[in-house]
């Protein structure tokens, strides 16, 4: 049964996942091509000075990429379920309604997290080649909330797409935008260091929000 669910979900998100993976990899490569260019071809001293003294974030292009990944995977996975109310087919399958939806969400989360983990791994791995450990660590602390925002976006967009009524959807969108804004508050590199675990806690809270959408659908809100 789980195999069948994964099979269907993968058909829906395969193309978008691979596309996003490719784009993300190219962006990370692009960031370090630029770093290499600055260090070797241009003025390495002033570049170092910018990072160390002026707290310049050399990877700001990465800021909203995880968010877009989470958003697009959720859209690719759940919009086909609400077109023509196909979610009825899913809920009619001979298994518990909540369990099947949670399994779908879990698979989408796994794909989102895997793509983001590849980005993060590449970003930190390539960073280690150019920078000392301290800068790589601060880069991790800076980007971690952005990557967590990607995961949060996945759960929020899944919840919003599955919500049966547009009125509620718009309200949730506004709430979602404000909620995701929290992840981008820090101005300086590593400024959200002590918020990472609270962010994880918040994500854990919204991870099962899709169950509320399904509850509303089954109550007849269509």
């Amino acid at each position: 049964m789980l195999k069948a669910i994964i099979y269907k979900e993968w058909i829906k998100i395969k193309k978008v996942s691979l596309f996003l993976l490719l784009i993300g990899v190219l962006i990370v490569i692009g960031i370090y091509s630029n770093v290499r260019h600055e260090l070797i071809i241009k003025d390495a001293e002033s570049y170092w000075n910018g990072i160390l003294q002026q707290r310049t974030i050399y990877f700001s292009v990465l800021k909203f990429i995880p968010l877009i990944v989470g958003l697009l995977i959720a859209v690719a996975q759940f919009v086909p379920e609400i077109v023509d109310k196909r979610i009825k087919l899913t809920l009619h399958l001979p298994t518990n309604e909540e369990t099947i939806v949670l399994k779908m969400v879990l698979f989408g989360f796994f794909c989102t997290a895997s793509i983001l983990a590849v980005f993060m791994g590449m970003f930190l791995g390539m960073g280690s080649y150019f920078f000392p450990q301290e800068i790589v660590w601060v880069s991790f602390l800076t980007t971690a909330p952005w990557f967590l925002a990607g995961v949060a976006a996945y759960f929020l967009v899944s919840f919003i797409v599955l919500e049966p009524l547009w009125k509620q959807r718009i309200f949730y969108m506004l709430f979602g935008a404000a909620f995701l804004g929290i992840f981008f508050k820090g101005r300086f590199p590593g400024s959200n260091e002590y918020l990472l675990w609270p962010f994880v806690g918040l994500i854990a809270c919204i991870s099962i929000a899709t169950l509320f959408s399904i509850y509303r659908f089954r109550k007849g809100e269509m």
Partner: peptide, 19 residues
């Protein structure tokens, strides 16, 4: 209405896992 993003083989494979 069915899972229109699948072809006839994929949809059969999907449903057969449940019954």
């Amino acid at each position: 209405v069915q899972y229109a993003f699948m072809n006839i083989y994929q949809i059969e494979k999907f449903y057969s896992g449940f019954f």
